[in-house]
């Protein structure tokens, strides 16, 4: 069904106009997914410091305990939790389970994500602080 130019088709899923919970959940799933892939690459790249010996790694660890990095960790946990919990939701829905409750499930996922992230962030700052 040719209609839109390629760039428009490529970004069609970003267009939230007229969409509801399900569309929003899908968009967030993709955005967190892309974010986590980028993180994975960075993470693996950073781990190379381990190969350079104790000094390089422990210096990095010290830096990673700065409040700025810890805040980034909070963001990471937010992304992971959403992606994981919504992943469970999408797997069930994808098998036709719980479709009538999909919007409520989405808000459940969001609340749980926010709650768990809040706890995790608190814990991170408590441990390192």
């Amino acid at each position: 069904m040719k209609e839109a130019p390629r760039w428009k088709r490529a970004t069609g899923w970003v267009d939230l106009r007229g969409r509801r919970e399900g569309g929003l959940a899908f968009l967030l799933m993709r955005l967190t997914g892309i974010g986590l892939v980028i993180y994975l690459f960075i993470h693996l790249y950073v781990l190379r410091l381990l190969a350079q010996g104790p000094e390089a790694w422990d210096a990095f660890i010290a830096m990673a305990k700065s409040p700025f990095f810890l805040a980034l960790d909070g963001l990471l946990i937010l992304g992971i939790l959403y992606h994981a919990l919504n992943g469970v939701r999408v797997t069930l829905l994808g098998l036709g389970i719980g479709v009538p409750h999909q919007a409520r499930l989405f808000w459940g996922v969001v609340s749980l994500t926010l709650l768990a992230t809040a706890i995790a962030v608190y814990a991170i700052f408590a441990i390192t602080g």
Partner: peptide
């Protein structure tokens, strides 16, 4: 991270 003191492993720990 969670069971590690300080949340991050040092080189020796890893």
């Amino acid at each position: 991270h969670f069971v590690v003191e300080g949340g991050l492993r040092t080189y020796r720990d890893v």
